[in-house]
Design a protein around this nucleic acid. Sequence first.
DNA 1: CTGACTTTTCAGTATTTACTGAAAACGTGA
DNA 2: TCACGTTTTCAGTAAATACTGAAAAGTCAG
Lengths: 173, 173
Amino acid sequence: MSKEGEKLRQARDEFVAQWGALGTQWGINRTMAQIHALLMTAPQALTTDDVMEELEISRGNAHSNLKELVAWGLVRPVVKKGERRDFFEAEKDVWQIFTIVARERKRREIEPALAILSKCAEDSRSIRTPEGVAFHEQMRALEDFVGFASKMSDRISSMKHGFALQMASKLFG
Amino acid sequence: MSKEGEKLRQARDEFVAQWGALGTQWGINRTMAQIHALLMTAPQALTTDDVMEELEISRGNAHSNLKELVAWGLVRPVVKKGERRDFFEAEKDVWQIFTIVARERKRREIEPALAILSKCAEDSRSIRTPEGVAFHEQMRALEDFVGFASKMSDRISSMKHGFALQMASKLFG
DNA sequence: CTGACTTTTCAGTATTTACTGAAAACGTGA
DNA sequence: TCACGTTTTCAGTAAATACTGAAAAGTCAG
């Protein structure tokens, strides 16, 4: 019993630590990734104090990262009857996680890029020098591609998991 | 003439600045993104000194970010006959850029994640407590999904642009 | 080999980002 | 209303990251 419990704790700690390290590679901060890992593998919803204790971080830190995770939609607050404190639980379904992350990255990375490209393409539309034309063409090419990627992302995110998988299997056998 | 030239310079400066700002959103640093933008819109290959001057940055900074871009494969050094200095030019084809970035992100973000998930799944395989089983299942689900994403990324990256586009059109009308 | 030019390295510094801890604000039952 | 448990904010600080500038190393023609 204790042995199995120990083994699980070890595996889970490993996961939390490594997922945190990985988070820094992706543009998100270590603590946020750690909290996410912790909640994804928690049997029940946890309080802010649980998170603070488990990761040995301050209240402010736990609070702001939990808030951020809720803003992403990767974590939701849950109310427990007879409890005044807030509890938090993570979305555990991988397809849900994927679509949330895809949507958020689209909003934060793709859409701003598209706005810039559209503006630069527009601003250079009327320039007739060879350099100007080349610049305009480059902006348009990028704009087209990013716009296309944006649309693809939407379509895939709005699919049901089973359907997306089935489609992919058909394509790639 | 001067008016058009002015307009182009303005549009290009805007692009470089904004692309740099965007870069920080993606986990890459501002300067690297700016250099990339500069080279993507340069009529000819540039030297380190050109980059330093245009972006008002130090030699060391220009050097290390150019090196990094070359390591990514987004920029290549070119030799000019009768010139001792190194020149640099960016890949301009959007599909090429996409596949390079996709490959690199896979290597840096997906593969390490897969390694962690495999290890944690393996380490928890034999645990028989309900919590242990749940943990193991969660790790396996994540592993499967990430593995699948990795394979998809490979397949798409190795396609020709035209083919990928055509396929996407068929799927999404 | 020497001298001129170029690239590379890196210690020191600046900037950005993340975290702490304590105070303030909030909400609720009595 | 107050007292208590909880959440939220934020000034100050710590840590991580990026940049500078100058020295060292490399390269090549004569």
